[in-house]
Design a protein around this nucleic acid. Structure first.
Length: 514
RNA sequence: GGCGCGUUGGUCAAGUGGUUAAGACACCGCCCUUUCACGGCGGCUACAUGGGUUCAAAUCCCAUACGCGUCACCA
């Protein structure tokens, strides 16, 4: 046990209430995120990591990253990098783990083989585990095997040792008690009890020498002095096995916190654990669509957790750290909602300066013609309040890159009392007025003022003129920005050209300028 | 199937025996307005069901239903 650290006593917690003892006052919280490197950072995993991170930070504790790569058959090249990069992008910096090291290194399980072997042997020696020489064919009927248990459990210890010494391949199984029950306490779910006979003699050490998750996580969590295990609910029923292991070694148990899963909504309205078929579910999928890491973290934090005493929903990582508490965790599943994510993301856009937004949005706009590129910051400012994610930009601005063909019916608008015929009257003088504006003064405020002057002079309806101009120049009914804003973005030459062509089409009755 | 966990509006959720059952997203309407959006105002919709306990239950207990998880030499 490391210095300055005292174990918690899970038995002394009731519900979500903690009885604080003197020892606990000096408890140094240590949490870990222990992903398996699959090459993909699922949003549910990110949330688990986030909660573990927040809790550690909130308690001035330590956040550990541990890579659980004990399944060789699942090894994916570069997968660890994906995990590390995601954590970095999300701002979840780990105090101990790969790259940064720490007093409990190594933090990659495949580098800790000797450790698991040693502890597995200890268990074999004290009778809490045994060698299993079964091959797949020996297991015969799976159901029967599961019911009767592994026959190796009854092999004489000396004989088993001899067979092992003779070079026979074996795995090590945990010897479960066949009677009684095992109870542990979960912060969210209270006491959870499982009959011991429900527990099978699980493999601790595979025949390739690698530990299974159920063994390695116990050994490592103990050796690394992890105080709070925050992980998914799928481990709720296997935790009694872990508890039995802690007991077999005579170790104190950490505090368990099992999180409800993140769900996705199916086409038929039902829900299922969030997976690829629900769309973008990986952190990188989301960022590729133009959701900001800060917004993703913000939204994901709220999926299964809620701060006390506030209705605010936009939180920075620092805010979350300050507000986080285990009591705010929800024990029921939460459905991932793209609408809400989009709203949160949009809130972040709105809080950025125009320049900041223009910078992050630029890569999503693709190649821009010179006239539009020159006005990018202004265009971005128009886009800022209209997006839920950056990938929407191309369709939002497509008409600026290429004037679309459009139907004259677009000039039709009842509220503004405008129709194609009226547009044909309105446009000519407008083109003249705009043509007189010097290129250097071709800016929104100037154009707006000029147009207003003209409107006042001829006594037309402002909405009608603006509508006609906007349609003539955009060829689209819904645009980011109004008439003069679009004129400004297009630049004088292109704007005038478009107005003329649209007017010509109107006159010719051909409508539209392809 | 056994065991376990869960269940407040379409979604996220507040709520810890006595409330007109918050708030947010989405949706709808109105206002603002050079379109859309932003912003402002308003509306819609919820305690899974059935039994208890209690003067009083979304809150406590028990069933039922439904959902999810787990029963691997995967994590």
């Amino acid at each position: 046990m490391a210095d300055g650290y005292t174990k918690t006593v899970p038995e002394m917690t009731f519900g979500n209430l903690w009885l604080i003892t003197k020892e606990e006052c000096i408890l140094k919280v240590r949490t870990r995120f222990a992903p398996s490197p699959t090459g993909f950072m699922h949003i549910g995993n990110l949330r688990t990591a986030l909660y573990a991170y927040l809790f550690a930070r909130k308690e001035n504790g330590t956040f550990i990253l541990r890579i659980e790569d004990t399944d060789r058959t699942r090894y994916v090249e570069g997968a660890t990098e994906v995990i590390k990069n995601t954590l970095k992008e999300a701002g979840l910096h780990w105090d101990e783990g790969p790259d940064v090291g720490g007093d409990y290194a190594p933090y990659v399980q495949s580098e800790r083989m000797a450790i698991y072997k040693k502890y597995a042997d200890e268990l074999v020696n004290n009778g809490h585990a045994y060698r299993c020489f079964c091959s797949d064919s020996d297991k015969g009927d799976e159901a029967n095997f599961a019911e009767k248990g592994c026959p190796c459990r009854d092999i004489d210890a000396d004989e088993a040792a001899k067979r092992a010494a003779a070079g026979e391949s074996y795995a090590i199984r945990q010897k479960m008690p066949r009677v009684g029950e095992t109870t542990y306490h979960d912060v969210l779910h209270g006491n959870i009890t499982i009959e011991n006979r429900e527990l099978e003699d699980q493999i601790l050490l595979k025949s390739d020498g690698m530990p299974t998750y159920n063994f390695a996580n116990v050994i490592d969590d103990h050796l690394m002095d992890v105080t709070h295990i925050i992980r998914g609910e799928e481990f709720i029923t296997s935790t009694p096995k872990h508890v039995l292991l802690y007991d077999a070694f005579g170790w104190d148990k950490p505090v368990f916190i099992h999180l409800a899963p993140v769900m996705g909504k199916n086409a038929d309205g039902s829900t299922a654990k969030l997976s690829k078929r629900h769309g973008a579910t990986g952190f990188s999928d989301l960022t590729a669509l133009g959701y900001l890491p800060t917004a993703i973290v913000n939204y994901v934090a709220l999926l299964g957790w809620n701060p006390k005493n506030t209705n605010e929903e936009i939180f920075s990582l620092d805010d979350l750290t300050r507000l986080f508490s285990l009591e705010g965790l929800s024990k029921s599943p939460a459905v991932f909602d793209y609408d809400k994510l989009g709203w949160v993301n949009g809130e972040y856009f709105k809080r950025m300066t125009d320049a900041e937004f223009a910078a992050v949005a630029r890569p999503f706009a693709g190649d821009l013609p010179p006239n539009v590129a020159a006005n990018w910051t202004n265009l971005a400012a128009l886009l800022k309040t209209r997006l839920t994610h950056l990938a929407q930009i191309p369709v939002e601005i497509d008409f600026l890159l290429k004037m679309p063909a459009f139907d004259a019916a677009l000039y039709e608008n009842k509220r503004n009392k405008i129709n194609p015929a009226a547009a044909e009257e309105i446009l000519p003088p407008v083109i003249e007025v705009l043509g007189a504006v010097e290129a250097e003064k071709w800016q929104n405020d100037v154009l707006y003022a000029k147009l207003n002057e003209h409107i006042a002079a001829v006594g037309q309806k402002k909405g009608a003129v603006m509508w006609a101009v906007r349609i003539a120049v955009a060829g689209k009914s819904v645009t980011p920005g109004g008439a003069t804003e679009l004129l400004a973005i297009l630049g004088k030459d292109e704007a005038i050209l478009r107005l003329r062509r649209s007017l010509d089409s109107l006159k010719a009755g051909t409508y539209g300028t392809a």
